Amino acid sequence: MPDKDAGTPRVFLVRHGETEWTISGRYTGRSDIPLTKNGEEQVSSSAKVIVGSGKIIDPSRIARFFISPRTRARRTYELLFDTSAQKELEEKVVITEDIREWEYGAYEGLLTAQIRAARKERGLDQDEPWNIWESGCEEGESPAEVAARLDRIISKIREIQSPYMHGEEAVDVVLIGHGHILRAFTKRWLGFELSVKLPMMLEPGAVGVLSYEHHKVDEPAFLLGVNMGGSE
């Protein structure tokens, strides 16, 4: 069966590698926690399989990078692309706060169980446990604030990709960010409010893929399976 969507631009979601706080499950927003040795190995292992000429993420096909300013995200970029590739890609890289992790505010460094227990002690969430997708974070960001900044990036991506929906030019985009924000991005890409229940997992150092159906920019889609042979 022929691939009716061959050549359609893609958006690659790259989560940074493991950190010490990733291991413990602590909420890591603005805290600039470096990758662990294992985290660096996670990213390097992914790079060997999916990054390179003719592979899923082909540097020659990338039109733009949007990268979180946090050290763990920037280091992930350095591990994915060798020095020579970075020099060629330099003008395509945008370091932006719009793809930083969710601002956790008073919940920074805490575990989900700690947050829920503390809120319940104060008389909050008596009927249902705290859910970041619905309630956001005290002294941090609300779902609406997160959605607004992600929508700005989505608008920029669609401006880049919409003229080339049949592959007339290579305009793939790579986002390098964090667990919560990349899942939030996926919801907004598909047109869902952040409160919509859409269980997703994205392991440290892993890659997710978004695209479009029927070569139409107004039909964004989650690319459930990717041919490991590359984009051609």
Results as ranks from 00 to 15, higher is better:
Ala47Pro: 03
Glu145Asp: 10
Leu150Arg: 01
Ala73Thr: 14
Thr112Asn: 08
Phe65Thr: 00
Ala113Tyr: 07
Arg152Ile: 12
Leu89Ala: 04
Tyr77Asn: 01
Val217Cys: 12
Glu169Gly: 02
Lys55Trp: 05
Thr19Glu: 06
Leu198Tyr: 14
Lys48Thr: 10
Ala147His: 03
Leu190Pro: 01
Val196Thr: 14
Glu134Ala: 10
Pro163Phe: 12
Val11Pro: 06
Leu182Asn: 07
Pro204Arg: 07
Met200Cys: 06
Ala206Ile: 02
Ala144Tyr: 06
Gly29Val: 11
Ile132Phe: 12
Leu210Cys: 09
Gly123Pro: 10
Val93Gly: 05
Ala106Gln: 09
Glu90Asn: 07
Pro220Asp: 05
Lys216Met: 12
Ser44Thr: 14
Tyr107Thr: 03
Glu78Arg: 02
Leu190Tyr: 00
Glu121Gln: 13
Ser155Leu: 10
Glu168Gly: 08
Ser31Phe: 04
Glu103Phe: 02
Leu175Cys: 09
Tyr77Lys: 02
Lys120His: 06
Tyr104Val: 07
Thr186Phe: 08
Gly191Ile: 12
Asn131Lys: 10
Gly140Met: 08
Pro199Tyr: 08
Gly52Met: 07
Glu169Lys: 15
Arg100Asn: 14
Ile132Lys: 03
Gly225His: 14
Arg72Thr: 02
Thr36Ser: 11
Asp98Met: 03
Ile50Ala: 13
His166Ala: 06
Leu13Tyr: 03
Arg74Ser: 00
Asn38Tyr: 08
Ser60Gly: 00
Thr36Lys: 07
Arg10Asp: 00
Ala148Leu: 12
Thr19Phe: 04
Gly54Arg: 05
Leu198Gly: 03
Tyr27Ser: 05
Gly179Gln: 07
Lys197Phe: 09
Gly229Ile: 05
Gly17Tyr: 06
Lys216Phe: 05
Met165Val: 13
Lys187Val: 02
Ile56Thr: 11
Ile181Thr: 12
Val14Gly: 02
Glu40Ile: 00
Pro143Gln: 10
Ala73Ser: 15
Glu213Val: 05
Thr186Val: 15
Glu41Asp: 11
Glu159His: 07
Glu121Val: 09
Leu224Phe: 11
Arg74Gly: 01
Gly136Phe: 06
Pro204Met: 06
Arg152Pro: 00
Lys92Trp: 03
Gly17Lys: 04
Glu193Pro: 09
Leu150Ser: 02
Tyr164His: 14
Ile50Trp: 14
Glu41Gly: 02
Val174Asp: 02
Pro199Thr: 08
Val174His: 10
Ala148Asn: 10
Phe81Ser: 04
Val93Ser: 09
Ile157Arg: 04
Arg116Gln: 15
Tyr77Cys: 10
Ile62Val: 15
Glu90Arg: 13
Gly109Cys: 09
Asn227Met: 10
Arg15Ile: 09
Pro163Asn: 11
Val94Phe: 02
Asp151Asn: 14
His180Cys: 14
Tyr27Gly: 01
Ala144Gln: 15
Gly225Ala: 15
Val49Tyr: 07
Asp151Cys: 07
Phe81Ile: 06
Arg100Gln: 11
Asp82His: 12
Glu169Ala: 10
Ser44Glu: 15
Gly179Trp: 01
Leu182Thr: 08
Val207Asn: 00
Pro34Trp: 06
Asp151Gly: 12
Leu190Trp: 05
Leu35Met: 07
Gly7His: 03
Met228Glu: 11
Ser31Asn: 08
Ile160Ser: 02
Arg122Met: 11
Val14Arg: 00
Arg100Glu: 08
Glu219Lys: 13
Gly230Trp: 10
Gly17Val: 05
Ile154Met: 12
Ser231His: 12
Gly123Phe: 06
Glu139Tyr: 04
Glu18Cys: 01
Glu97Gln: 13
Ala144Lys: 12
